[in-house]
Design a protein around this nucleic acid. Sequence first.
DNA 1: CAGCATCCAAAAGGATACTG
DNA 2: CAGTATCCTTTTGGATGCTG
Lengths: 132, 132
Amino acid sequence: MAVRSQVRHDDWPSMSDAFNSDCPAREVLDHITSRWGILILTALGAGPLRFSELHAMIGGISEKMLSQTLRTLVRDGLIARTVEPTTPPRVSYELTALGRGLTESLHQFLGWIRQNTVEVVAAQRRYDRQNR
Amino acid sequence: MAVRSQVRHDDWPSMSDAFNSDCPAREVLDHITSRWGILILTALGAGPLRFSELHAMIGGISEKMLSQTLRTLVRDGLIARTVEPTTPPRVSYELTALGRGLTESLHQFLGWIRQNTVEVVAAQRRYDRQNR
DNA sequence: CAGCATCCAAAAGGATACTG
DNA sequence: CAGTATCCTTTTGGATGCTG
């Protein structure tokens, strides 16, 4: 009988899937936490936005990366893309029902960052002072 | 009088900071959501682990990236590194009080992925079928 | 306005070999 | 065991120019 796993996941039940590099969950994790994914998904958490609005809200993102990341997340079924056929076309993006399931934890996550960035920066300074 | 911001953040109160590429919060976001950051932090959520244990748990990570990411997160004050001076040395990593504040939302986040990966994969197939 | 295509520079990251 | 150092490939992503 073959060994089924190197590590006993029973000990930490909630960390299956994405910990396995062959599991599709790893790809989902990578898409969402890609450089711009979380910011895009969080921005859309407040409601639909147009391409140019997203571009203005997310500091430092290029049009190329915005377009590319949006396409990935639309493909994953987290974001819906709607084109109103006017001239010029109005394209808006919004979370799907699936994507909306992420809003809560992403919101919490960014909330933690907002509240603790000061402490992290302080820790960085202590570390840099120490290691010299 | 100078314009103070291009976008009115008042409309979406919770999305300040990390949305600004110049804010230190952006760097914190990038460190945590770096390719291996979330997996490492989540793994340590269940308790202290040694270098080799982390390496075994996280599929696909190289020693270089594990070492490098750990150093970044130790510097950020999210993880503590402890060396027991035996031969060979026993080095273990654990979340700091600061880092433990992240466990809850990361746990929720990975939980969402575990439960919805199947749907995402289905959406990907629909998308690929459509665009051909 | 909302993009796509191309080119190119920079960064990430893996493989391998070596060390206290 | 727990790394570090080096090399080298792959990926990322910005800039620019063009299109319906």
